[in-house]
Amino acid sequence: MQKKSPSLRASIISSLRQRRNRAGTLSGIAGERLSGTLVASYNVHKCVGVDGRFDPERIARVIAEIGPDVIALQEADKRFGEREGLLDLAWLEQETGLVPVPLGNASRAHGWRGNVVLFRRGIVQDVHQVSLPGLEPRGALVVDLDLESGAALRLVAAHFGLLRRSRSQQARRLIEIMQSRDERPTLLLGDLNEWRLGERSSLKELGPAFGRLPVPVPSFPSGLPLLALDRIIANRPEILSDVEVHDTPLARTASDHLPIKAYVDPGLQSLALPESAETDAATASEATHAMLSERPLPLPEALSGDTGERRNRELVRKAGVRLKRAVSRTLRRREPPSR
């Protein structure tokens, strides 16, 4: 039976206790790998650490620590202007074997609106770049990936907005896309920016496709993780292990988010590719990569022009302030006495 999601306050108190209990220990080093396909999600905060230093190499070393087979990154490109990519992809490929899902565009960005999916070995069968509704320029990558292990997965790598209404709209948009495509085991990975739990959470919109959401794992802020802003969710919960936070000294400094990770069991029948599909995939690898192109699914923007941009930024700034206040209020509350 799936565990019931705790209240926000209970989740934060549990996180504080767990962190106190594991003080001085390291978790999540690549040498401790379990069996299965390791998937991860990491908001790299435009490669700026909690010390205020821009250091792409430090982010790359955290990714190498994790040792993932597939990882979804958020904020891997500059947010404004040409959205130039910030990571050294050549170093990552050399040191970890990870390469980005090809998007087939001429942009200098690594991904789509800051979202990047890196994978180690496999065949990209399809990819779509999705524009998400809301006041901020948010997006998602929908990738159909056949892994070398034999797993056939759909990955939805997303970064939701700071406004609750926008997050609800964005969740509904992803559900619409999933329902309009061929059925595949699907993982939703990314920074979903939702700290509320239960009925107040905008993520309840994901229910039609994902059912009851797994117990959240706090990953933000990285120095003292209290809020589960980052998520890995499966539409078939049986394929996914418990989600864990990758909490190491380097990860606590490299970004304001800690990475999260989980294992997909490639031995499950629900993930297996049909034999004909395996044969086709083996012969179509190069052609598939060459054919992939930017195929955004745009939605109309709520506002346009300089006035709209200024208003959008002000709303986002206020949402960030509310997030900080939510953390402060929760920390000021005392744990109720046991009975």
Results as ranks from 00 to 15, higher is better:
residue 1 M to H: 05
residue 3 K to F: 03
residue 11 S to R: 10
residue 12 I to E: 10
residue 13 I to D: 06
residue 16 L to H: 00
residue 18 Q to L: 06
residue 19 R to E: 08
residue 23 A to P: 00
residue 27 S to Q: 11
residue 35 S to V: 07
residue 36 G to N: 08
residue 41 S to K: 06
residue 43 N to W: 13
residue 48 V to K: 15
residue 52 G to S: 03
residue 52 G to Q: 03
residue 56 P to I: 01
residue 56 P to S: 10
residue 60 A to V: 01
residue 61 R to A: 02
residue 63 I to E: 06
residue 67 G to N: 06
residue 69 D to V: 08
residue 81 G to Y: 02
residue 81 G to H: 04
residue 86 L to K: 02
residue 87 L to P: 05
residue 87 L to Y: 08
residue 94 Q to N: 02
residue 98 L to W: 02
residue 98 L to C: 07
residue 99 V to I: 14
residue 102 P to N: 01
residue 112 W to R: 01
residue 114 G to F: 06
residue 116 V to Q: 04
residue 116 V to I: 00
residue 117 V to D: 05
residue 128 H to D: 11
residue 128 H to R: 12
residue 144 D to R: 15
residue 147 L to W: 09
residue 153 L to G: 06
residue 160 F to Y: 12
residue 161 G to E: 05
residue 163 L to G: 00
residue 164 R to A: 13
residue 164 R to Q: 11
residue 167 R to S: 08
residue 167 R to C: 01
residue 167 R to F: 10
residue 168 S to Y: 02
residue 170 Q to W: 10
residue 172 R to S: 11
residue 181 R to F: 09
residue 185 P to V: 12
residue 187 L to M: 14
residue 187 L to I: 09
residue 189 L to F: 02
residue 191 D to F: 07
residue 193 N to Y: 04
residue 193 N to Q: 11
residue 197 L to M: 15
residue 205 E to P: 14
residue 208 P to V: 07
residue 209 A to G: 14
residue 211 G to Q: 10
residue 214 P to I: 13
residue 216 P to G: 05
residue 216 P to R: 06
residue 216 P to C: 05
residue 219 S to M: 01
residue 223 G to P: 00
residue 225 P to K: 12
residue 225 P to D: 03
residue 225 P to W: 14
residue 230 D to T: 11
residue 231 R to S: 11
residue 231 R to E: 00
residue 235 N to L: 06
residue 237 P to F: 13
residue 239 I to K: 04
residue 240 L to C: 06
residue 241 S to N: 00
residue 250 L to P: 03
residue 252 R to N: 10
residue 254 A to M: 08
residue 256 D to I: 07
residue 258 L to T: 03
residue 258 L to Q: 02
residue 261 K to I: 02
residue 263 Y to P: 00
residue 266 P to V: 09
residue 268 L to V: 00
residue 268 L to F: 00
residue 268 L to N: 01
residue 268 L to A: 05
residue 269 Q to W: 01
residue 272 A to L: 09
residue 272 A to T: 12
residue 273 L to Q: 15
residue 273 L to H: 10
residue 276 S to V: 13
residue 278 E to N: 04
residue 281 A to M: 08
residue 281 A to W: 15
residue 281 A to C: 05
residue 283 T to L: 15
residue 284 A to T: 14
residue 284 A to E: 14
residue 284 A to W: 08
residue 286 E to K: 11
residue 290 A to H: 05
residue 295 R to V: 12
residue 297 L to S: 08
residue 297 L to P: 01
residue 311 R to E: 05
residue 311 R to L: 07
residue 313 R to S: 09
residue 314 E to D: 05
residue 315 L to G: 03
residue 317 R to D: 12
residue 317 R to M: 13
residue 326 A to K: 13
residue 332 R to Y: 04
residue 332 R to T: 01
